[in-house]
Simulated scan of single mutants.
Amino acid sequence: MALGSVALVSGCGASSPSAPDHSLSVTSGPDTPRSTSTNSLVNASPQDVCSDLGIASVAGDTSVDYGPADARRRAAQQYGTPALQQQWAGSGQDQQWDALKAAHARINATATPVGDDLPPAQNGQASAAATITPTATLPNGQHQPMTTFVIYCGLQQVNGAWRVTTVNLA
């Protein structure tokens, strides 16, 4: 079953307060694709936090999520500042969501750091970028690639942890 591509765009969507947390702990090197997001921000680098936000922004289970906005909301709550949480509240539409939901797909993603010449972290501010490659997995185990995108993050250190303040998607 071909599901087509998925795009992240601003819009309204319902949210599910009881949706599951899709984050898991992982270890990876600087050039190793990350496949799930970490639970702790305390020791995470700006790159890790940006990558994890990108992964979490698309990770979901269509059997419990009302729509792609649920993943965006969870991602912003876990990795973003209050301003990003407010900006992303209810945002995220996907023309393919109905097909994904009908197929009972789970959406996972990997993140690979982008090698752009980003400025170094200083004065509690940092930038990071990652290529996010989402994949829908059907109950029969079939994997359907989805649209890859690049996430550019502006980050700020808050209480000793990096938090995402701004996001641009390309």
Rank of each mutant, 00 (worst) to 15 (best):
G115E: 08
T166K: 13
T110S: 15
T133R: 09
R72T: 08
G141N: 11
T137C: 06
Q144R: 02
D21W: 03
L8V: 07
L8R: 13
L53Q: 03
G124I: 07
C153I: 13
W162Q: 12
N39C: 01
A19W: 06
A129F: 06
L100D: 08
D61R: 14
Q142F: 13
N108D: 12
I55S: 13
R163T: 04
N123Q: 07
G29I: 02
D21Y: 04
L41D: 14
G13V: 01
V158K: 02
R34I: 02
G13R: 10
D48T: 14
D31W: 00
T166S: 11
D98C: 05
G11D: 01
G54F: 14
G80Y: 12
Q47I: 06
G60Y: 12
L155E: 03
V64D: 07
T62S: 14
T112Q: 08
M146S: 11
T133A: 15
T110G: 12
G54A: 05
A103K: 12
D94F: 02
V58E: 07
D70E: 12
P113W: 14
N108Y: 09
G13E: 12
Q156V: 15
D52Y: 13
T27N: 08
T166C: 04
P46K: 00
I55H: 09
S18F: 08
V158T: 09
